[in-house]
């Protein structure tokens, strides 16, 4: 949460007023925090989870509210607020990992792993050859050459969603065919 340390004094005095029951100060504090939380979460949640930024901001605000008695006035307020923000982020990441179906990034990691090993180039080509031509080209572009989904979609004349689905299905097929042998 960069930018927070400089505002420590202002936020801390808002927090102390809030703890004393000043709801105007509290409104100001929460509005300020919700902006910082949004910035913090947007920067750290990847594509798949970016839709959850607002939910996470609200969850963090609720936690700050419900557990405000854990703030020790002798300590930095921003450190306290940041620890809650971070805990909620870690919690979301853990939950999303637990419920992930074959996550596409994991499969990409699997491919990358093959890529570093010495006999890998040939292996990778062999593996990709088992896929239909169009899927093969898309995977090459998006996952190996590092093009964006939008670029690949434009050059293939497909919608972005269709590209994502094709890449995902292709990687899953590869994983099913080769992943288990390793």
């Amino acid at each position: 949460m960069s930018g927070l340390p400089t505002s420590e004094d202002r936020l801390r005095s808002l927090m102390l007023a809030s703890l004393a029951g000043d709801s105007a100060a509290y409104r100001k504090l929460l509005a300020d925090l919700s902006e910082r939380l949004g910035r913090y979460y947007r920067r750290r949640l990847r594509e798949a989870l970016s839709a959850q930024v607002d939910d996470l901001v609200q969850e963090a605000l609720l936690a700050i509210h419900a557990r405000r008695m854990t703030y020790d006035p002798n300590r930095a307020f921003t450190a306290w607020a940041f620890a809650i923000a971070r805990y909620k982020l870690v919690d979301l990441l853990r939950r999303s990992r637990a419920q992930a179906h074959v996550a596409i990034d994991d499969v990409a990691d699997f491919l990358a792993d093959v890529d570093v090993s010495t006999e890998s180039a040939a292996d990778l080509a062999t593996m990709l050859d088992t896929l239909p031509e169009r899927t093969r080209v898309l995977i090459r572009q998006v996952k190996i050459e590092g093009q964006s989904v939008a670029e690949a979609a434009a050059s293939a004349g497909m919608s972005e969603a269709a590209v994502k689905v094709a890449v995902h299905r292709g990687l899953k097929a590869l994983f099913n065919r080769f992943g288990r042998k390793r």
Binding site: S18, G21, Y26, L30, D54, V57, H65
Partner: peptide, 21 residues
């Protein structure tokens, strides 16, 4: 949404003594 939540939390605010924990 978030603004509504903030309003709700502000209305719910009760003083907390510093040694509450």
């Amino acid at each position: 949404m978030t603004a509504e939540l903030i309003e709700r939390l502000a209305q719910d605010l009760k003083p907390v003594p510093s040694n509450a924990l």
